[in-house]
């Protein structure tokens, strides 16, 4: 896949660009000017749509913005005061812990189910293509539809899930209440994320040479051994990128949670908290732009840290 191609070219690069004088000469060529010309639209785009909003977000978190700010333009400088207020608020640490649970549990299940299905579909059998296609449905459905359906299925009094577990003698669960809502949204989010993991891991599997499996089979390795000694190690680069993307996606999930519970009770994550404060929705009736940007900045920092972790893992794999 593209991953491995990238790695190959990365491995080749030092040999080609080793000559420093050649590089300097190339920089002065007139072609470089044209190159800058070609790059500038991208730079302008990045500045306008990435750097500027990011700057505004951070600036908002350092000034006190209210609704009136938009009319009067008055936003007094607050420094780190709003950060301290948000972190000291009684909601902060519980919300962080909900977010951590939501992300970690979602990722573990999405990845392992996705990987199991990918390995399963690697063996071609009649209708395997159709079945694999069907597994993409959660990904293709608008979340408003799937979220509402989950909410309906998890209805405490007449939901199909409670009826199903009732068959096995389990008492009905009030899925969407304060205590259980985190698990309710995690279940829905796992279902939602499996196709993404399945698709990427499946295409990663296509890059593992069948020869390896043949050789292993001749050496007498069973399927279990083949998985742990061939599939899993060779899939590591793909797994790393899947987990990183999954982490970032899961961290910023608002829609499915909002549709199911409006972020009430244990289902309040940093992302839904920021959303409710930024728009004055749900439990946070008063609009709190600055506090929302603080949470937004914290989310960005966490995602950034994960990015560095990914880079470190990748470097270790290349070494």
């Amino acid at each position: 896949m593209s991953m491995t191609l990238l790695e190959k070219s990365a491995a080749r690069r030092p040999a080609r660009t080793g000559d420093a004088t050649a590089r300097r000469r190339r920089l002065m060529r007139p072609g470089v000017l044209a190159g800058i010309g070609f790059v500038s639209p991208l730079v302008a785009y990045m500045a306008l749509f990435y750097a500027y909003p990011l700057y505004e977000n951070v600036s908002m978190s350092l000034h006190r913005f209210t609704r009136a700010t938009y009319v009067t333009g008055e936003a007094p400088w607050a420094g780190s005061a709003i950060y301290r207020e948000v972190i000291a608020s009684p909601q902060f640490w519980p919300t962080v812990s909900h977010t951590a649970t939501f992300v970690v549990v979602s990722l573990v299940f999405q990845y392992s189910i996705g990987l199991a299905l990918a390995v399963f579909f690697q063996r071609h059998f009649p209708l395997s293509g159709v079945l694999r296609g069907l597994f993409l449905v959660p990904w293709l459905l608008p979340i408003i539809v799937s979220g509402t359906t989950w909410q309906w299925m998890m209805d405490a009094d007449s939901g199909v899930i409670n009826r199903l577990i009732g068959v096995f003698g389990v008492d009905p669960v009030w899925w969407l209440n304060t205590d259980h809502s985190l698990w309710a949204v995690i279940i829905a989010n796992i279902w939602l994320g499996v196709p993404f993991n399945l698709v990427i891991l499946y295409s990663g599997l296509q890059n593992i040479s069948p020869d390896l499996y043949e050789a292993a089979a001749i050496d007498g390795a069973g399927p279990w051994r083949q998985f742990w000694s061939i599939t899993f190690p060779l899939l590591k680069p793909v797994s790393a990128i899947t987990l990183l993307l999954g982490f970032v996606y899961t961290l910023k999930v608002v829609d499915i949670i909002w549709i199911m519970t409006r972020g009430t009770g244990a289902s309040q994550t940093l992302a839904t908290w920021a959303y409710s404060m930024a728009f004055g929705k749900g439990a946070s009736a008063v609009i709190k732009y600055s506090e929302a940007s603080v949470v937004g900045s914290i989310l960005l920092l966490i995602a950034l840290c994960m990015g560095f972790v990914y880079l470190a893992v990748q470097r270790r794999q290349e070494a």
């Binding site: 408003i144 539809v145 979220g147 509402t148 909410q151 309906w152 608002v254 829609d255 909002w258 549709i259 959303y275 728009f279 929705k281």
Partner: peptide, 20 residues
């Protein structure tokens, strides 16, 4: 019942998009 409920929720939750 479901479709009505879906619509109502859809209206509520199209929030972000619409406000943008």
């Amino acid at each position: 019942m479901n479709s009505k409920r879906t619509l109502a929720t859809a209206a509520c939750a199209a929030l972000a998009v619409v406000s943008l």
